[in-house]
Amino acid sequence: MTFDKAGWAAERGNYDGESKRGAMVSGIDDAGVRVGATRDQVRSVLGDPDSTGPAADIYYLGRSRSGPSFETFRVDYSTAGVVTATGVRRS
């Protein structure tokens, strides 16, 4: 599935329900969220994160399709605010 900026934004705050974001993760790199991008560039694509800190932004993906866990998309940043890693996490 390709990345849909409006669809992604509509799911903000959806921690434990079904979410359309999970299907969009495969298109995030093509949308510009990749290693080397700045925090401002990431936020221009993904919008404000559901949770944030000095080293990472977290976007909720909702309940996992493969079990009772919850998924997030994490963007890690260097101290200079440049993406060092991205990935889906389960909790």
Rank of each mutant, 00 (worst) to 15 (best):
D40V: 15
Q41S: 15
V42I: 10
V42L: 13
V42M: 09
V42Q: 11
R43T: 14
V45C: 12
V45K: 12
L46H: 12
L46T: 13
L46D: 11
L46E: 12
G47K: 10
G47F: 11
G47D: 13
D48W: 08
D48M: 12
P49V: 01
S51M: 07
S51N: 07
S51Y: 11
S51G: 07
S51A: 08
T52L: 06
G53T: 10
P54R: 01
P54I: 00
A55D: 15
A55I: 11
A56W: 03
D57K: 04
I58N: 05
Y59Q: 04
Y60A: 11
L61W: 00
L61Q: 03
G62N: 04
G62V: 03
G62F: 02
R63V: 08
R63G: 00
R63A: 05
R63W: 07
S64N: 08
R65A: 14
S66W: 02
S66Q: 11
G67A: 06
G67V: 00
G67H: 03
P68C: 08
P68Q: 11
P68H: 14
S69H: 15
S69Q: 15
F70M: 08
F70Q: 07
F70S: 04
T72A: 03
T72Y: 02
T72F: 00
T72L: 00
T72N: 00
F73Y: 09
F73N: 00
R74T: 14
R74W: 10
V75Q: 07
V75L: 08
Y77I: 04
Y77A: 04
Y77C: 02
